[in-house]
Design a protein around this nucleic acid. Sequence first.
DNA 1: TGCGGAGGCTAACGATCGTTCGGAAGGCGG
DNA 2: CCGCCTTCCGAACGATCGTTAGCCTCCGCA
Lengths: 190, 190
Amino acid sequence: MSARRTELTRAAARLFAEKGYHGTSVGDLAEALGVRKGSLYAHIQSKADLLWEVAREGAVAFHAALDAVPEEGPAVERIRAALRAHLRVVAEQLDVATVFVREWRYLEGERRDAFVAERRRYEERFRALFREGRELGELRADLDDGTAALLALSAANWAYTWLRPGVDTDALADRFTSLLLEGMRGYASR
Amino acid sequence: MSARRTELTRAAARLFAEKGYHGTSVGDLAEALGVRKGSLYAHIQSKADLLWEVAREGAVAFHAALDAVPEEGPAVERIRAALRAHLRVVAEQLDVATVFVREWRYLEGERRDAFVAERRRYEERFRALFREGRELGELRADLDDGTAALLALSAANWAYTWLRPGVDTDALADRFTSLLLEGMRGYASR
DNA sequence: TGCGGAGGCTAACGATCGTTCGGAAGGCGG
DNA sequence: CCGCCTTCCGAACGATCGTTAGCCTCCGCA
């Protein structure tokens, strides 16, 4: 892919995240490249192509981040690693992550179907960590692992709204992990 | 407000939640009422009015729900009540809640400023519960209450994406509360 | 040196956008 | 029964939408 084409994708990610897909016109994208809007069609076939590309980029980034989580070892450590990985992607590719979480729903047809499947698969990989943690005895035997995964995924998916680039996402993820593991109730009141 | 006007607001909430503000045309809204698009302007001055109205309706609903949480009593019980209240609003007014959480950013000018202030105030009320819980000794003394509140608010704010009307939101909120309080680590591994 | 492809231009396309306008039903209170 | 108020109509407005077309320029490579 040419350098110019890459610039266009970056501008699309930024503008879709900032103003929304339907709130961004082809003219806006052209202006970001310092070009007339008709010229963009030397690079793309349609505006929808850009949404698809950014959404896919997000899916690839998040799945790749999960790939780096070890398959072996304590489930607790793998949960911590997964949260770290997710938050790192959000902070380092905030625009792409925003499109991945919020703007994907403007995809249409089979692209939308394919995206939803990828997204479901990602959440399933996340969920599995909590199930295994319970089954291996590292987490409470009576744990509702579905709810636990939902809580963790909520924090992960909501992060794009408040996470700013440059913060220490590892420390952040560890605080989340610690809270999820230990809870917030004091020993005195237990 | 006339009955017809109320119908229009309901249709706006539904369509804005389903297709997004910029993805919903005035023609779409008119069609939902079985009317020509020009006729809507007997009820509103602009499409933006509808977004403002639905967003404000959401703010009122969520604040009113928090108002029902007792000011006294154990902080833990008030946190549980706040989560119950929030999830109930999401389930019972899913469209309005979706606009409140996701579509508000298309507000412009001072309306947007006013909404942001209301939203911040709502989150602050939530946050205070966790701070008080720690200060009163009900939660661990070393609790990072900012992170705890962020975790709870993430679950609350993400709920519109998966919560379907008709589920037992009280039970759901209690599962969240229990997890937040007790954590998911087993006694064996502590 | 010539040629082709990449990338830009201007201009225009039809469609749709949000909004305005004058007029006409219809119901309801005076 | 009159007059007003609500509600809707049909038609049109200018603006903007995403996309296409034909043409030009420039650079790298045969």
